[in-house]
Design a protein around this nucleic acid. Structure first.
Ligand SMILES: [Mn+2]
Ligand SMILES: [Mn+2]
Length: 573
DNA sequence: TCCTCGTTTG
DNA sequence: TTCACACCGTCCT
DNA sequence: GACGGTGTGTCTCAAACGAGGATT
């Protein structure tokens, strides 16, 4: 029943109508109306006039017009050629369009920039339209646009374009005016702008399957209008910045420091951090340092140290570096600070600090004939029936964690789940995630000592098969791998890995070795597995890999770094 | 006339 | 949209 | 060696389609 989350996910709440996408040709309209109903019911107190007005107008439309509008909303961009809107289930487009224009939901004579025109029309059509203005009509489309740009730098309505070019337009163009309001409704429904309305069909078809987590009828992503606006503002700023918008304008458009929402403040901080990064690259170091200071991001301290170093301000840099080493925000910061400190000491003419060498790692060297990926090559080479090798990287340990702790991860905590298409709890990456579920996780982890972890993981593997999870990538698992892993990995090691993961999910869910080798025939009590990080020529251990290896060394877990060099063709070696 | 890439579809 | 790798250049010791 | 930048491949939901540019 996970394939139809809409029908089962909501506990004590009005059910979403399930669009039978196999038979209803207007399945997308059913889904969209479900969103409107959902949002109206849950956000009645937070909707603004724009949103209310849209919902009212939409509901008053004939069904063909509603369908056409939703088709446009779900397609890319806001501008459409009428001759590209062909839908059997809608029929006569002009008839469906008329009420949309009448209600102001669609503009039938929109201003178009040259860029827009080039998006809408094909190369051949544009050559026809601008026949009299193109010296080299055989050029690439991009060059044609460049040639026209100086002359046609105004946004014009279609009729004016025809007049300016001296030819008739080959198709009518309309523009959706309701895209922003639809985006806000999407944001309110999903709590993010990453998920599209298409999640509905994919879930209906069982392509996406989501865990069914009960939540109360008043559950929603946002609790205040201000949060919706600020989320929107931050998102808008990030988009503008990524599109190369002016930095000062973007910074000015960001909301003020958000005191009442750690979550939004962190999102705001990430945009500031990205802008600071950009300044740093541009050589605007002072500006960068200042922005890093405002970002509130944990990684910002190291960046500020680097910037101060580049500015020649070694004394303040060292002060920050010492602070970072004294109370590192993360293992990653400790690691980086330890690398920077000797440089600063040298620059300041201070005594060379005692450096602490990396923990020694078991190492092996291989010369192999060149072929596809190094990891696959080494896997093939080492694999044997008695000691099978798998190329798993992060997927195995994360999956074991995700399966063992399934109930804790999908626990119905208030605020964690609020729509049927979530692959995990909304607060997964927030710092309080673990603390708010400590008991639940400890209960799951206790199975490692109670001796029931194998059954639990196998059972979850079977019963949750294919359901989206932030930790389980189903394609990377199979029965053989899972059985061997459960047989050979000691529960104490699993606990250590899982607890490490829980201390910082974002940082610790990556960096695990490429390969894992099992020794199922080794006697009980000896090491029956080995993790192998493969390094091709010219690749060295990354920071997160070093951290993982150091962690394993502290816990007596077998890790080997396997260095590969390619055998030359002639066998000259 | 192919090949590649982005978009649309359910 | 993520993570890992390959490979480049730069500074510095 | 440290550090940063860039590009690539693996993911992609999968299939169909169309536009553009390279290929012949
Ligand atoms: Mn790897
Ligand atoms: Mn590797």
């Amino acid at each position: 029943m996970n394939s139809t989350p809409a029908s089962t996910a909501v506990h004590d709440a009005p059910l979403l109508t399930v669009a039978d996408s196999l038979r209803d040709p207007r399945y997308y309209l059913v889904n969209f109306e479900n969103v409107l109903t959902w949002v109206s019911e849950r956000y009645n107190d937070l909707l603004d006039d724009d949103e209310r007005d849209f919902i009212t107008r939409f509901q008053g439309l004939p069904v063909a017009s509603k369908a056409l509008l939703v088709r446009m909303v779900m397609r890319k961009g806001e501008h459409f050629r009428l001759d590209r809107l062909n839908y059997d289930e809608i029929g006569d487009i002009d008839a469906a369009l008329a009420p949309l224009i009448e209600q102001g939901l669609v503009d039938n004579s929109p201003c178009l920039t040259l860029d827009r025109l080039f998006d809408l029309f094909t190369r051949d059509e544009l050559v026809g339209l601008f026949r009299d203005h193109l010296p080299r009509p055989r050029d690439r489309k991009a060059l044609l646009k460049e040639a026209l740009a100086p002359t046609f730098d105004q946004a014009l309505v279609p009729e004016a374009w025809a007049a300016a070019a001296g030819r008739a337009m080959v198709a009518d163009v309309v523009c959706l005016t309701v895209m922003p309001v639809c985006e806000r409704l999407r944001l309110m429904f999903f709590g993010n702008l990453r998920q599209q309305f298409s999640e509905f069909v994919l879930a209906d078809q069982g392509i996406y399957r989501f865990e069914v987590v009960p939540f109360t009828p008043d559950s929603r992503a946002f609790q205040s209008r201000a949060d919706i606006e600020r989320y929107w503002q931050i998102h808008d700023c990030r988009e503008r910045f990524e599109a190369g918008g002016d930095m000062d304008e973007v910074l000015a458009a960001l909301p003020e420091c958000i005191g009442d929402s750690v979550w939004l403040e962190a999102r705001r901080g990430r945009v500031i951090h990205a802008i600071a990064r950009h300044c740093e690259r541009q050589g605007e170091l002072v500006r960068a340092a200042e922005l890093y200071g405002h970002s509130g991001q944990a990684e910002a301290r190291i960046r500020r140290i680097r910037v101060l170093e580049r500015l020649g301000e070694h004394q303040p840099a060292l002060a920050l570096c010492t602070a970072a080493q004294h109370a590192p925000a993360s293992e990653a910061e400790r690691q980086q600070a330890a690398r920077i400190q000797p440089r600063l000491h040298r620059a300041l003419g201070m005594a060379k600090p005692l450096s602490q060498a990396d923990a020694p790692v078991r190492r092996c060297d291989l010369a192999l004939p060149r072929s596809g990926s190094v990891e696959r090559t080494v896997r093939e080479h080492l694999d044997s029936p008695e000691a099978p090798v798998f190329y798993v990287e992060n997927t195995l340990i994360n999956a074991l964690f995700g399966l063992l702790c399934w109930e804790a991860i999908f626990a119905p905590l208030p605020g964690a789940f609020f729509h049927p298409f979530q692959s995990g709890p909304a607060d997964l990456m927030r710092p309080e995630f673990y603390l708010q579920r400590e008991q639940l996780f400890q209960r799951c982890l206790a199975r490692l000592e109670e001796g029931t972890w194998r059954e639990t993981i196998q059972q979850r593997y079977r019963e949750k098969q294919g359901i989206q999870s932030p930790f389980v990538h189903w394609g990377a698992l199979d029965d053989e791998l899972l059985s061997l892993a459960l047989e050979c990995l000691p529960p104490a090691h699993l606990r250590a890995w899982f607890e490490r993961l829980l201390t910082d999910i974002r940082a610790n869910r990556a960096g695990m070795p490429d390969l894992i080798r099992f020794y199922p025939q080794a006697p009980e009590g000896t090491s029956r597995y080995e993790m192998i990080e493969v390094k091709g020529p010219g690749d060295r251990l990354q920071d997160n890999q070093k951290r993982w290896i150091a962690f394993c060394a502290r816990h007596d877990m077998p890790v080997t770094v396997c260095h590969v060099r390619w055998q030359s063709e002639e066998g000259a070696s």
